[in-house]
Design a protein around this nucleic acid. Structure first.
Lengths: 126, 126
DNA sequence: CTGCGTGCAAATGCTTTGCAAAGAC
DNA sequence: GTCTTTGCAAAGCATTTGCACGCAG
């Protein structure tokens, strides 16, 4: 069995921990490459997949775009996301204004939920 | 200028209107093909893109899967979605338990939001 | 040393596009 | 008849995988 500590893996995890928003594989790649210039995009995908299966990160989907990922630690402080219609960046939004349990149809059981807000971010709101 | 009424286009729209949940391109293809067996998947993608730009349908994203689409009419009855962790189908959930406006950071403006619930559907909840 | 993890390049698989033929008006 | 839409096959792209080498333990 395995789990060797490599520079690539730690740099990728740091990138995810320090960005205060979910990152796409390309964003992770660009960021982590500054620390390990030989890093390949394939490794980013592989490490992301490992982290996902270890439940250390959580995927966030946006229509028409690559999935983003954020640390589970980050996700533990329950919050949601804002997606800018213009620059397409994601932002963290603290807290949660959702009350849903009551509306779930009979026979369904809930494990988690995700809220995505769409609009213009402070930079793009011309 | 254009917008010709073709059998393909109407069958695709019907499939979207009659499914009471968002459909993926493959689901649309499978469904619409029952009416027009010669239908090609390329046409599904083309019609979907047209409908999107006409704002007649709305995209719904799920991590790791193809986007789904639902009619704007359907989306007008404000509601949200449930994604089954097992069968990966989407279901419509009536209503909305969200109160968010107050939590939006300064400088951000909101245009719409999407709530995705995850769990087990009635069929998969063994 | 041993064998997991990485980089590279090839392979996938979903989505898009070019083009000639079919169909709408 | 004219011009849009379609089907098919090829092209694009993001993501995954095979393989040989490098590095962690």
């Amino acid at each position: 069995m395995s789990a060797r500590a490599t520079k690539q893996k730690s740099v990728i995890r740091e990138a995810l921990e320090q960005a205060h928003r979910p990152l796409s594989p390309q964003e992770i790649y660009t960021e982590a490459r500054q620390q390990v210039p030989t890093l390949s995009i394939a490794t980013v995908y592989r490490v992301v997949r490992t982290l996902l299966s270890e439940k250390l990160i959580v995927p966030v989907a946006v229509p028409g775009e690559s999935d983003r990922y954020e640390t589970q630690l980050c996700a533990a402080h329950h919050h949601h996301h804002f997606c800018c219609n213009d620059c397409h960046r994601l932002f963290d939004i603290p807290g949660c204004g959702l009350q849903v349990a009551a509306q779930l149809p009979r026979g369904f059981s809930l494990s988690r939920h995700e809220v995505m807000l769409y609009g213009s971010c402070r930079d793009c709101r011309a």
